[in-house]
Design a binder for these strands. Sequence first.
RNA 1: GGCCCCAUCGUCUAGCGGUUAGGACAUCGCCCUCUCACGGCGAAAACCGGGGUUCAAUUCCCCGUGGGGUCACCA
Length: 443
Amino acid sequence: MTEKVITRFPPSPTGSLHIGNIRSLLFNYLYTRKHGGNIVMRFEDTDKERSDKVHEAVALETLEALGLDFDRGPFRQSERTEKYVSALNTLIEKDLAFVAEESEGEPGKHVIRFRNPNKTITFHDIIRGDITIDTTGFGDFVIARSEDSPVYHLSVVVDDIEMGVTHVIRGEDHITSTPRQILLIEALGGTVPTYAHLPLIVGSDKKKLGKRHGAVTYQEFRDLGYVPSAIVNYLALLGWNPGDDREFFTKDELIKEFSLERVNNSPASFSYKKLDSINRHHILQMPEDEYLGEVKKFLCANAEGEKLCAFVNFEDLVKLVIRERINKFSEVTSMFAAGEFDWLLHAPEPEVDKLLWKDTSPENTRKHLGHVIDSLDKVSNWTVDDIKEAIWPYAERNGRGEVLWPMRFALTGQEKSPDPFTVAFLLGKEEALTRLQKAEQLL
RNA sequence: GGCCCCAUCGUCUAGCGGUUAGGACAUCGCCCUCUCACGGCGAAAACCGGGGUUCAAUUCCCCGUGGGGUCACCA
């Protein structure tokens, strides 16, 4: 009960840290922080061929960005070989392992095999209860490619024992290999940790989440405009829930609420739609300047975008027309590409018949536009509120659609846009009046 | 195929013997509204099948079916 919780972050730098790994790390993190324990960061790079330092850097960047800090490490298994060798020698001395003559491919090479006692192992899993597996089928499995090249199962076990790991929280794809590791722990005289095997995250096709399903690494999600807090929030909900209807959590709230007992045990499929909705919530919570900075990053990326960003009322544009409309920041790029901001940069060439609201006559429309022009001309304080105040009573009297539609269409030339008051405000008084007069003359 | 894990709306899930089976995302409808978006309201939508146990099963047990995982000198 008073035992200090020690867990680990054990990515293998043989590929990108993907969302499934990140979720496992997150659950380790939440559990450990909740119980005031320590997290050991450890790169499992015993496969020299496939390990790459690039992946280590990406993994560290991901943890940093998501705020998943650890307490010890990062260690590298490739730098701890002597510990595994010593364990290996101990096992061989005790005749719990042996040098086997055969080795695939190269004749004359040896491998080290574990002398499997061929017994049935039962271990308790916090999430699934007792799991019993007969290890006979594993045979005398290989624990080292050679005297100085241990294989995953050995190095993990040696490290977990030495680092005092108390809780192993990982994906359920490791269930089957758990008995193998327990066998080794017993042979080495270590204490078997507590296990918790998390349900896998699958794609919409129920298969293990991978590239073909879309974004899978933190960096990909970041580039799409998802924020770290939303990713953490959403990932926590994949397999865990607080037991009530709450869905929005900060990292600290998650630490407070989290428990492995409430992790469910069936695979969860990743929903980009749901992530969008969570992300929307989180970006709405962002401080304004931070929000502006993010939009700028996405919107001002190219020459045309830069022009828009140089627009006098950039901040107002974001606050008034963008903030409520996006789920993720990359959407401002698509909005821009779809021409939704064209009216800001280019005066429209409005088609006459589209200026008319329903069956309103050109004469009446011209009259309304004339009135709008006169009213706006008198507005001295050019704010959305004052503009609306100048137009609204007249629109109410004469039919909102008959007045507002031609006004908005004259200003934007688009059937869909923000409301005419906001549009007029963003264009500035002079430009707005110019466009309205131009439309009036068309009628 | 052997072994292991899993099974509630399309999706994420609540439920831990007795509920009108609840919420969220998505979908659809209505309202708001000059359009779009936002917002509000509402609708449709699920217990894989068969046996037990029980006064009573979505819930407990067994079998089947389905899905997934794992069977490396990868982790």
